Amino acid sequence: AEYEKLKSQPVAEKLREQLAELEKKLSALDYNPQRIKDIESRLERFADAQRRKIELENALARHPQLRERRDSLRHALEKIEAEIPTIEEKIAQIAEELAHLPEIEAHIAEIEEKIARSESRLAELGDQKAELTAALRRYEDIVSRRKEIESQLAQHRRRERLLAITESILSREGIQDWLMRGYLEQIETYANDTLSLLSDGALSVRLVPESGEKLEVNISDPLGERSYESYSGGEEFRIDFSLRLAMSRVLAERSGFPLQTLVIDEGFGSQDEDGIGKLTDILYQVQDWFERIIVISHLPVIKESFPARLEVFRDSGGNSQVRVVA
C-alpha cells in the first residue's frame, strides 16, 4: 500500500526517470565484466608496487657506496693480477729449489751430524773447563796464600829489623848510653845543689860514664876526690838522696809531668842530729816539687819535724793501730 502510494507521488516518478537515465548511460559505457576482472587481476599483480618502489629508492641511495666498494674490489683485483707474475716467478723458484731438496736434506743431515759431534766435544771441553777452573781457583788460592805468607814474612822481616834496631838502641851502647850522657850534666848539677846544702858545701859529685851501663860516681871533699864506696853510711845516704832527687827532677822536666810523690823509707837512722835537721830542711825546700812527701821513720825527732802524720802504735791487745795527727 505504501509502495503504491509512493508510485503515485511525483517524487517516485522523478526517481524512475533518474533510474532509467542511469540504465541508459550504463548501456552506453559498454560494460564488460570480463574486462573488469582482468583489470582487477592486474591491480592485484601490482599491489606491492609501492613496496618495490621503496626498495628501489633504497638501492639507489646505496648506489654510491656500492660503486665505491666495487672500485675498491676492482683495484684489489688489479693489484692481485699485477702480483701474479711475481708470485708465479717465486713459485717457479721454489719448485726449482724443491728439485734440490734431497741434496739439501743430505747436507742438513751432514750438518746435524757435525753439530752432534761438536756438542759432544763441547761437553768434553766443558768438563775440562770445569777441571781447569777448579785448578785455577786452587792456584789462585795458593797465590793468595803465598802473597799473605810473603806479606807476613815481610812484616816479620821488618819487625826483625826493628827489633834489631831496638835491641841496638836499648843496648849498653844505645839510647841508654846516649840519654845517660845527655842527662848526666843536669843530674850532676841538681845533685850538687842538694848535696851542698846537706854537707855545708863539703861534698860534691861527679858522674863519669864507663863502658856499657856502668856509671862511676866520684865524690869530692876537702881531702880530694874519692869513690862512692869509701864514704860512711850517713854520707852515702846524703849522696843517694841528692842523686835520687836530682834524677826525679830531670825526669819530671823531660816528661812534662810534675812529680806526684816522694817516699823516704828509714833513711834517717844513719844521720846525726845535724844531718837529720839538714835533710828535714831540704824536704821543706823541695815540697813544692811534689804533690805529697811521705817519710817513714821510727825516730821521734823525725816525727816531731812534720805536723801532719800517721802514727802506727800497738794497743793494749797488741794490735797495730793508726792514728792521724794533723
Rank of each mutant, 00 (worst) to 15 (best):
Y3H: 11
L6A: 15
L6M: 14
Q9V: 13
Q9M: 15
P10D: 15
E13L: 15
L15I: 14
R16M: 14
A20N: 10
E21I: 07
L22V: 12
E23D: 14
A28Y: 07
A28N: 12
A28H: 10
Y31L: 15
P33N: 05
P33T: 05
P33K: 10
R35P: 02
K37H: 10
R42A: 14
L43D: 04
A49T: 11
Q50A: 15
R51C: 03
I54E: 15
E55T: 08
N58F: 05
A61L: 11
H63Y: 13
H63K: 13
L66P: 00
R67A: 15
L73M: 06
R74F: 08
H75W: 04
I80C: 05
E81F: 03
A82N: 13
P85L: 04
I94M: 11
I94V: 14
A99L: 08
A99G: 12
E103G: 12
E103M: 05
E105R: 09
H107G: 12
H107S: 13
S118C: 06
E119W: 02
R121N: 13
L122G: 07
E124S: 12
L125D: 09
K129H: 06
L132H: 00
A135P: 00
L136Y: 00
Y139F: 12
E140S: 07
R145G: 15
R145P: 01
Q152F: 04
Q152I: 08
L153G: 01
R159K: 07
R161N: 14
R161Y: 09
A164C: 02
I169C: 10
I175L: 15
W178N: 09
M180Y: 01
R181H: 07
Y183A: 09
Y183H: 04
Y183T: 07
L184Y: 02
Q186L: 13
T189A: 12
N192G: 06
S196C: 07
G201M: 05
A202G: 03
S204Q: 08
L207E: 00
K214I: 10
L215K: 04
S227P: 01
Y228H: 07
E229F: 03
G233S: 14
E236S: 08
I239D: 00
I239K: 03
L243P: 06
L245V: 11
R254C: 03
R254G: 02
S255W: 07
Q260P: 05
T261I: 13
E266K: 00
G267K: 03
Q271I: 08
D274A: 12
L279C: 10
T280Y: 02
T280I: 12
T280G: 02
L283S: 02
Y284M: 03
F290W: 01
I293H: 02
I296F: 04
L299S: 02
E304K: 09
F306Y: 10
P307L: 07
R309T: 04
D315C: 04
S316G: 13
Q321A: 02
R323A: 05
V325E: 09
